[in-house]
Design a protein around this nucleic acid. Sequence first.
DNA 1: GCAAGGACTGAACAACTATTCAGGGTGAAT
DNA 2: ATTCACCCTGAATAGTTGTTCAGTCCTTGC
Lengths: 226, 226
Amino acid sequence: MVYRRTHQVVKRLAARRSAILAAARETAAEGGMAAVQIAPVAVRANVAAGTVYRYFPSKAELISELIAEVSRDELAAIRRAADAAPGPSSALAAAVTTVAVHTLSQRRLAWGILAEPVDVDVSASRLASRREIAGEMAARIDAAVRAGHLPAQDTALAATALLGALHEALVGPLAPDNLDDPAKLRDAVQTVTLLALRAVGVMDARARGLVVQQTLLPTTKALVGA
Amino acid sequence: MVYRRTHQVVKRLAARRSAILAAARETAAEGGMAAVQIAPVAVRANVAAGTVYRYFPSKAELISELIAEVSRDELAAIRRAADAAPGPSSALAAAVTTVAVHTLSQRRLAWGILAEPVDVDVSASRLASRREIAGEMAARIDAAVRAGHLPAQDTALAATALLGALHEALVGPLAPDNLDDPAKLRDAVQTVTLLALRAVGVMDARARGLVVQQTLLPTTKALVGA
DNA sequence: GCAAGGACTGAACAACTATTCAGGGTGAAT
DNA sequence: ATTCACCCTGAATAGTTGTTCAGTCCTTGC
């Protein structure tokens, strides 16, 4: 064999694969999942349509990887924020705020990842990703329950409901569409976080305190632009 | 003109229109919105594909009407339940429970109506319907706030979040899939209702009381099969 | 019965896109 | 320079599904 995969070639191939994924991500961020079609993505990645199929066996696979990637990022952010908090309640508040902020900062992409039309082949992947995030939230709720800060409850269902509330309020079809103003954006995050904390049983006064704490954190402030 | 629309003919036409809509509804209830294609619906309605277009200018219009119809039913049920309640908090609890029960009793249809992939032409109609229901919920929350039972809050956002929580927990992709058992179903309704009430600021103890009250109502009992 | 106007049919059409593949191009070893 | 694998291209293919329309069937009023 006169041809061999040089290190250089391997790198180029990997770069191309990343470029295609990145192109898909950008496309989704601009036009939602529906806009993620092979031809436009290929153009954006400076590649021919056929080439995409040398890297991903099908469009479904491409989108699945995209979803997995974005979800991985979000999950990491949630864990980072929660782990840095001083106690279980604080950690839960941090997790909720992180989801809210992340979701808001890339609304279109979030909408595509969370709820937009995809065919069945993709929904399995999407489901897995969401379950992971829901599981993380459930664990945080559980910790607060065990610490005696919250009443006993079905944490899995609570986590699911919380995520539903956050998503619907912030990116769903009913979400207010004037969230470009940083102040309103911050208000929305606070309001929704407050709702979420109260939902799982945090007393109103304490919940308000946690929300304020979150808002004072540098990371949150930076992301919300407050 | 030798041909005129007899009363009989008018009735037949109306019946056919209803049949098509009903066929669409059944199809959606079985296979989600994606299954609502002209050909299958036509077959189900005992009609040729072309005939559908004599009653609906496009598929989008057909689906829009379907969504409007289902939403109208739900809105009416919510109002009925809430109006029958003795006070604002009770009314809110009734509204929440009604949404939960209705949603659960036709999960697949609800999923299609609420969240499934549809093209843009339809989303306007869907949006309008959801706004109506969200508006009703917001009004109920507002009434409770004015009565001094709840803290002041952004009622529109709260209503949105509540609906998101209910839908995600009960029909969303993360919803538990073992809700066929009536007992579990009732538990799920209670849990989610409790979460929702606490989210808007009902104190834990009082919320639990309201949930129990709802469960004792004949309508709820019948629907939940308790 | 029969003429006229409308309703119904369903095969053909059209538009959109994922996917393929034959042919040209590229990088690596000799 | 040449040859061998492999990679890339993009036009053609194929599958899906909403929509149309020329022909057929019904209903009505005479």
